[in-house]
Design a protein around this nucleic acid. Structure first.
Length: 176
DNA sequence: AGAGTGATCATG
DNA sequence: ATGATCACTCTC
């Protein structure tokens, strides 16, 4: 994931995600067909960034993954910083080590200076923020941990579904 | 384990 | 208009 802010480039490898599956997923903002000012980006075409504000102080970002009217999104829960760590430290303030920079969904947004201003950004254009392929080979399934999502204990029969994905042993994965 | 913090959303 | 909630983080 690449972010240009004030002319400087920051980047990180996506190491942890969660899937939010449209109108039937009780943990998704679009559950039951809810369509609000906040979540309207989720209802649009995939390839755009959905950013929401929560707990009075935190932003979290998602990659919209469905076609229009199919509100599926992938929450970016953690990044392994690869470029611009100095700027990330400045943005985060309290972080002591590199593993504190982006090891959580709101931390990653704070490090990359992502707010509601970035909601709806087209990630297929290399402007402001986008996603690039790495030169690394795809990881084998054996290197991916799969488990229940974090912080959605209210979601009844959806709370234990295996929709959280992370790279096994990567120190930048959130504690959750 | 508890506080911090305010937008958001369903209710009426 | 009101009140409960919240896809979290930090500090104790």
């Amino acid at each position: 994931m690449v972010r240009i802010h004030n002319g400087a480039r920051m980047a990180g490898l996506i190491v942890e995600t969660e899937a939010y599956l449209g109108v039937e997923d009780k943990a998704a903002h679009t559950f039951g067909g809810r369509r609000t000012a906040r979540n309207q980006t989720m209802w649009g075409d995939g390839g755009h960034l959905y950013v929401y504000f929560t707990y009075g102080m935190h932003y979290c970002m998602n990659v919209v993954a469905g076609k229009a009217e199919n509100p599926i999104a992938v929450l970016i829960r953690a990044l392994e910083p690869t470029e611009g760590m100095e700027l990330m430290h400045a943005n985060r303030g309290k972080a002591k080590r590199d593993t504190d920079l982006c090891s959580g969904p709101a931390k990653a947004c704070q490090a990359l200076n992502v707010t509601r201003e970035q909601d709806g950004v087209d990630l297929t254009r290399k402007q402001g923020m986008w996603i690039e392929m790495t030169r690394q080979r795809a990881l084998p399934a054996s290197r991916i941990d799969i488990g229940p999502r974090v912080g959605i204990g209210y979601a009844e029969d959806w709370k234990d579904k295996p929709l959280r994905f992370s790279i096994r042993g990567n120190p930048h994965v959130s504690r959750g």
